[in-house]
């Protein structure tokens, strides 16, 4: 039986948000998020549009820093350090907490270079061919691209491009991989392949996945956090539990209404 989120401790905790608020200018986008994420598990963030689930996700690797008006209050603890402390370099954080985006965004480089580039800037000194191959294998893409590594990343299909993006993320050997609706731009077959892939990846990585698709959360995740938008338009965490519990015995009435499709 998987442990309850309240019982996560230093032994199995990957990252934790404590009383986190995110603002865009004067607008509070999410409020008072406290949540522990388990190591080597898949945690899904679900909720209606505008509930702030992507904003929360992007706080975990400081991608919000790229929006000049964004501001984070509270703490995100990673190995005991608050990643928003002044003496923490966001570059360092992103090397350990990687991200896969909603739309596949390969670089305008060859397939090989797409994977090798991140590792190289991270100071990888080993055998690059080997790393590229093992990363592409982990992303279940190797067999499809091994004969055309020098072709442009854009020559691949959408699903392959997304697996290429996963491969380049894996190549920098992060602890945690954040996925922001990684299958929303893909067809059902490609979506299932990515979901299978995510199951394999949790052996080595902690995965947090934002999804619009409740079936996906139910199928593919171990834990589910349900977010909603409050009357002041700020997103907040409604309920967080083991995925089977969320989908069979939700404690909150809103959660039940959402998963049974009555809003959202």
């Amino acid at each position: 039986m998987m442990p309850n989120p309240n019982s996560f401790n230093n032994g199995n905790l990957a990252v934790e948000a404590r009383n986190m608020h995110v603002y865009y200018g004067n607008f509070r986008a999410v409020k008072d998020i406290s949540l522990k994420v388990k190591r080597n598990a898949i945690t899904a963030f679900i909720g209606p549009s505008g509930c702030g689930k992507s904003t929360v996700l992007r706080s975990f690797n400081r991608m919000n820093d790229l929006v000049t008006t964004a501001r984070v209050e509270g703490e995100i603890l990673y190995h005991g350090n608050n990643i928003y402390d002044n003496d923490v370099d966001p570059v360092e954080i992103r090397r350990r907490i990687g991200m896969v985006f909603q739309k596949p965004n390969p670089f305008p480089k060859s397939i090989y270079e797409n994977v090798a580039w991140g590792a190289r800037i991270n100071g990888y000194k080993g055998d690059m061919d080997e790393l590229v191959e093992s990363s592409l294998r982990q992303a279940a893409l190797w067999d499809e691209v091994k004969d055309k590594l020098n072709e442009s990343g854009y020559s691949l299909s959408g699903g392959q491009q997304q697996r290429l993006c996963i491969a380049r993320t894996v190549a920098v050997k992060p602890d945690i991989i954040l996925m922001d609706e990684p299958t929303s731009a893909l067809d059902p077959v490609a979506t299932l392949r990515i979901e299978e892939l995510i199951q394999d990846l949790k052996e080595k990585y902690t995965i947090i996945i934002v999804t619009h698709n409740m079936q996906q959360a139910a199928r593919a995740s171990d834990y589910t956090a349900f977010f909603n938008m409050d009357r002041d338009r700020a997103g907040y965490l409604v309920e967080y539990d083991r995925t089977p519990d969320i989908f069979t015995t939700p404690q909150n009435e809103l959660t039940e209404q959402y998963i049974t499709g009555r809003f959202g």
Binding site: L66, R94, R95, K109, T169
Partner: peptide, 24 residues
């Protein structure tokens, strides 16, 4: 999207500029 992709791999601003902005 490419700029964010580069940052998400832990690139510095200069590395991102050299790999994405300048070639484009």
């Amino acid at each position: 999207a490419e700029i964010q992709g580069a940052y998400a791999l832990g690139s510095t601003r200069w590395e991102m500029i050299r790999a994405i902005v300048l070639p484009r």
